[in-house]
Each structure stands twice: as structure tokens, then as C-alpha cells.
Design a protein around this nucleic acid. Structure first.
Lengths: 216, 216
DNA sequence: CGGGAGATTGAGCCCCGTCAAAAACAGTGG
DNA sequence: CCACTGTTTTTGACGGGGCTCAATCTCCCG
């Protein structure tokens, strides 16, 4: 078995996403920006889904919980990202502001002219989700953290440094690890001179290619 | 933090999916059924995506590989399931027939009348993908296998027995485990009287509720 | 400076992966 | 129907990566 072609890079997907986001921004910009303080709920699992959301600034986490408290964050949404569409009019996940976040929201008319764009965004989300499955199912702790940093960096358009709006706990719950393991990998990468940690929430990527290579 | 509402059960989602599938079946039925023998490729990662596919009979695996051969199956598609839509006209995954499989295929007109249905199917796929993240990121081996059996049973509409078109290797690559671990969990469930194994590819669920409870 | 939340580091253990062998199964041809 | 062969699955022994529990440290804000 041979891999017939390389996949789209994260950066490519980011550009595609940006283009799409901008395509539907005009409609969104007519809407006011609602402010959500860090940790506040945007919607809950089980709620009726009537709106589409677009992040103006800040960061949103989409997650789900098991009965005993285990949590899996399915996605982080950054400025420009659109989220909140549902097939059956019911939210299947929770959405919360990670930090101080501004959000455009508008009612989702089922057959609105922008539904083509919504389809594109949904399909992009599907690819993202399925790619994250590869990380969760088949990569070890170091590879997961590297994939996360690479993804965040490319989404922020800067391969030299990233700032992380989320806590170590959030990162762990996104990567299917514990906060201790995430912390240990960060320490290891720092010790190996691959990254530097100017502060808790920002990462300098000294050896970008080493990080990229870890993601296979 | 409290969970505000229970999610849609797998069975509910199955019915929703069936309804949607049937909605677009008329268009599909005008198309011939192409036959794919077990293991044959339907499309490859990197290929141009021009068609939509619907499983007539059999089973399809959607997967991706790491450079060193690790594989993650993102989804299994059974009779009625629609797959193959892509945001940017390029396949990001491989699709292969798991067993002898028949497939309807038709060109995907970007603004065809059925695009509303395609959006619904895409959104359903997104929910499925994100729910599978919870399994991959936060559940142990026994919980993963239980979740798999419950899901397959509900999709097949029979909570007393399931037949599995796929090998243990496929199951392992779907659940992010090794085939040895999958095999051990099957043996354990059998030993505990929760399931019986009339043959390699069929499972009788003696204690359905026990299985359901394991999935939390 | 003091208090508290979040992050780091350490020690020990367990689940699951790895390696290896045996068993069950599926074809194939006689 | 059975013997033969290759593949898939099962089972066992063992080791390691990541989780758990716990202590320490760092960074904020008063």
C-alpha cells in the first residue's frame, strides 16, 4: 500500500477556511458582537439550535462529557471560525468561551442564500474532525502536542510563535491526555531546544521543522 | 457543571440518517450500482472528488495513514449511508470496500436541488465524527469495543445480534487499539456472559443493557 | 507580601502495546 | 469428505508509556 498523495497542509486548510469565513462575513457583520467572559456558556448540549455563530475575537471550545466527568474537547474555534450548525436542530455538544470572546450570531434560515457556504464550512469541519481522529487514535503524547502546536501556529499564521488562549487542562482534554502528560511534553520540548516558553500562554517554536516532523 | 440534556441516542441518529438517505435515494436509484470486491479502492487520498457515493449493500471504510503505516479508520459506511463529499474538491481520505460492496455514484452538482440534503448528511457526519472523538480520546479498551458494538447494532436495527463485515484489524484501527486488545476484550465480554460469538463475524448480545452501560 | 489557582515535577503502578506462539478458520485441490 | 496451506484470530508473557497520586513551584491579583 502506498500513499497516493499528500494531504492538504493545515496552512492550506486555514486559507480555505479564511476565504469561506470572509465570504459569509458581510451577513454576519450586520449583527452585533455579543461578549462572552472566560468560561461562560454559549450553548449547551440538548439545547435547540437556532443560530450560527462566528468568532470575532477570542476562542471557543466545543466539548462533550462522560457521566463520570471525563471531558473531550472536539474543537477550538478562533477568530473567523463559524460554528453551531446542527443537522437536527439540537446541539449535541457544549460551547464555552475559553477566554474573553466576542461572537456574531444570526438566525440560520434553512434555505438562506448562504447555505452553500454553510455546507462548505460543515465539510471543512468534518475533515478537521476526521483528521483529529488520527491524532487521538494513533499518535503518542509527544506527537499529539506537536500536532496541536503546528495546527495552532498555522491557524494563527505564524510559525515562529503561538499564543495559547487555553489552559493546560483544555489542551489535555483536546488531545486525550492528562495535564501532567501535556506539561511533561512541553518541558521535554523545551529541554530539547525545540520550543521556548516565554510565558505560560505563549510558545516560541525554535525548531519549526522538528515540530512538523513529529506530526508525521 | 451539569449535563443539561442527554444526547440523541445512536438509534435516533440512525433513524434520522435513514430518513435522509431515503430522501435522496430517488436520484441515486437512476444510477447503476457499481460492484467493488472486498479490499478494492473506491477513491484515494489526494484524488479529485467529483462524485457522491451511496452504499447499496456491503460496507466501506474511510481511513487515513501515517507515514510509518499506522492507520486510523474514521468511519464505516453501511447500506444507505452517503459519503464522498468534500469541501475543496479533493479527497482527504481513502475509501475502500470492506467486503463485497455495491455502490451508487453520481456527479455532485454544486448547486443541485439535493444540496440541502447533502448539508444535512454532512452535518450528521460531523456529529458522528465528533462523538467518535470522545471514544478515541477518553474511553478505555472495553468501553470502546462496547461503544462499537452498540453503534453497529443500532445502525443495523437489531439489539440482539450484529454481524460485523470487518476484520478485527479494521475494528482495532477504528477504535485506536491493537487487534490483540480487541480480541482480548471480545474474549472477556464472552467470558462474562455479556456476548456470545457464534462465528468470527457475528456477535450475539446476551446482556444488551450491560453493553449500553459500558458506553456511559 | 500573602493567598490561591494553575502548572510542573516526582514516584509508583497499571493498562495496553509488543513480541511470540498456538489455535481457529477459510480456501483449494485431490 | 479430508488433507494441506495460508490467513486471521486468540492467548500468553513481558515491558513501557502514560495515568494516578502527591508535593512543590510559578504566576497572578489582591
Amino acid at each position: 500500500m502506498t500513499i497516493h498523495a499528500r494531504s492538504l497542509g493545515h496552512a492550506d486548510r486555514f486559507r480555505a477556511h479564511q476565504a469561506l469565513s470572509h465570504a459569509i462575513l458581510p451577513a454576519a457583520e450586520a449583527q452585533p458582537v455579543a461578549f462572552y467572559p472566560a468560561g461562560s456558556e454559549i450553548y449547551a448540549q440538548g439545547e435547540a439550535a437556532r443560530k450560527l455563530y462566528q468568532v470575532a475575537f477570542g476562542c471557543v471550545r466545543i466539548y462533550r462529557m462522560l457521566a463520570d466527568g471525563r471531558r473531550q474537547i472536539a474543537a477550538f474555534h478562533l477568530a473567523g471560525d463559524v460554528f453551531g450548525f446542527e443537522a437536527d436542530g439540537t446541539h449535541h455538544f457544549f460551547a464555552e468561551a475559553v477566554d474573553a470572546t466576542g461572537i456574531h450570531a444570526w438566525r440560520h434560515a434553512a434555505n438562506a442564500p448562504e447555505s452553500q457556504d454553510v455546507l462548505q464550512l460543515a465539510l471543512l469541519g468534518l475533515v478537521r474532525a476526521q483528521e483529529h481522529m488520527l491524532v487521538l487514535g494513533r499518535q503518542n503524547a509527544a506527537e499529539r502536542v506537536a500536532a496541536f502546536l503546528v495546527d495552532m501556529a498555522e491557524r494563527q499564521g505564524d510559525t515562529r510563535s503561538v499564543d495559547l488562549p487555553m489552559s493546560r487542562t483544555d489542551i489535555a482534554d483536546y488531545l486525550g491526555l492528562t495535564i501532567e502528560t501535556v506539561s511533561r511534553v512541553f518541558s521535554r520540548l523545551k529541554q530539547d531546544g525545540i520550543i521556548r516558553l516565554p510565558s505560560l500562554r505563549s510558545v516560541e517554536m525554535v525548531k519549526w521543522s522538528a515540530l512538523r516532523d513529529m506530526t508525521s
